[in-house]
Design a binder for these strands. Structure first.
Lengths: 238, 238
DNA sequence: TATTTTAATTAACATATGTTATATATTTGT
DNA sequence: ACAAATATATAACATATGTTAATTAAAATA
């Protein structure tokens, strides 16, 4: 069921697909290629917006600091994803932060060029607005998972989503490679407690771990946690 | 600290404040007053958008069904809040549902009239887009609370937020009047387990309960759960 | 108002998660 | 390649939350 994954996918990799060839040409012309080192930020909460970014290679985490200061990761961007447009369309400051999980290759479009592009191509502006509404729904779905599911179920869901995300876009690997801190942060638990759940999954043959990379070995068993109807469940085992 | 509350407030009650008197006149003219019974829906997930609503009296819950079907409440609307515009701006269907928690008095603006208003008043369109971005941040903050805080802390946070929300807009009462099912759903626990937390708060004199209405009696003790710095904490005791 | 239905409260027990501590593995910087 | 720093794995114990069940309170309906 494609639907299951779409509920948790921003789909911001498809934004520039709305452009025709002439428009694409303009976009390409104003794009600036940047190389960003692992651990550095593309933008940060409270900063003045400089433009938008499209990831061409690598992964980045999007997070927000709650009122008590701890970071909360709520999305991971991969190849082709566009980010940073919320602040350009509406807010005067970035509302969240984005940090490279590994060395990145990024296309940058400055604020003025992006606004010009939006202005010249109403279809694109419409698509961006529509996408923000879609992303709103993704966050609502994330809230539902965090509020309703126990830890093992949350882990199962995130493993499914992350494997798809990483497989889809990073040809060379189907494994899930995240620090235990980042993964536990997303799932809403401590890294030690996440470790316990991972061990349970390992012991029942659902996953294997090499170095820190998690490989799903028994997708059907993982899906059992999701309590989907059997038709949807079957559709997810590809 | 006003900031604390704003992090969790859609602020959609201020949208029509962007209009000048002539524009307001047009809006008033096309507004249709509706009376909606407790328990009925203003709109529902998957439905075709008909227009936007402004609450003039009463409260409504916004929720979404996760992939396994259970409803997840992620916002409560009160007096003057505007809702239903996401679907008009971008999506072709409502992405979530909205249900009356009590008998409502609502102003309805049809899709065509609202789109006309947006078109005639670019400032309003801009404000709506900006608001959706802001709401995105509210959901991210909600994710942080659900992922990072234990049950008593989540309860403390939601009690603070709900009391402010209800006091601000419903003059006659400062109590928190929600079914245990709705409150536990928001907080991410079972109603029985919520009951245990409520009892703990009651026994330590933090709250009092009459019928099912919760009254905060010791705000300072509640704030201890939030682990705010003492300056922010002091600012919240008014 | 009386009756029926639904919601709230509470307790006891089972299970899940948080926390601290220690050992091992991996990465980083020289 | 080595040392130092950081990340991961795991266990043991403490605490928090889930679950079932029984009782009481409140709300809906006739």
């Amino acid at each position: 069921m494609k639907d299951f994954f779409n509920q948790f996918d921003f789909q911001s990799d498809q934004l520039f697909g709305k452009l025709n060839s002439a428009e694409k040409k303009f976009a390409d012309r104003v794009m600036e290629k940047l190389l960003i080192k692992k651990g550095s930020t593309l933008f940060y909460e409270g900063g003045i917006p400089t433009g938008v970014f499209q990831l061409k290679n690598g992964r980045a985490k999007k997070f927000k600091r709650g009122f008590s200061g701890e970071e909360q990761i709520f999305y991971i961007y991969t190849k082709d994803d566009v980010m940073g447009y919320h602040a350009l369309l509406g807010e005067e400051r970035y509302q969240d932060s984005c940090e490279a999980l590994e060395d990145l290759e990024v296309n940058f479009i400055s604020k003025s060029n992006f606004l010009k592009l939006l202005n010249d191509v109403p279809r694109l502006k419409q698509a961006v607005i529509k996408n923000i509404s879609h992303e709103f729904g993704v966050l609502a779905n994330t809230i539902a998972v965090l509020a309703q599911k126990d830890q093992n179920t949350r882990l199962a869901i995130f493993l499914m989503l992350l494997e798809k995300k990483f497989k889809q876009k990073i040809a060379e690997s189907a494994g899930i490679d995240l620090t235990r801190d980042d993964l536990s942060n997303m799932i809403g638990t401590s890294s030690e407690s996440l470790g316990r759940s991972l061990k349970q999954f390992k012991d029942s043959g659902i996953i294997e771990i090499e170095k820190r990379v998690i490989y799903i070995k028994n997708k059907k068993a993982l899906l059992k946690f999701l309590r989907l109807d059997s038709i949807t469940q079957d559709a997810l085992v590809y």
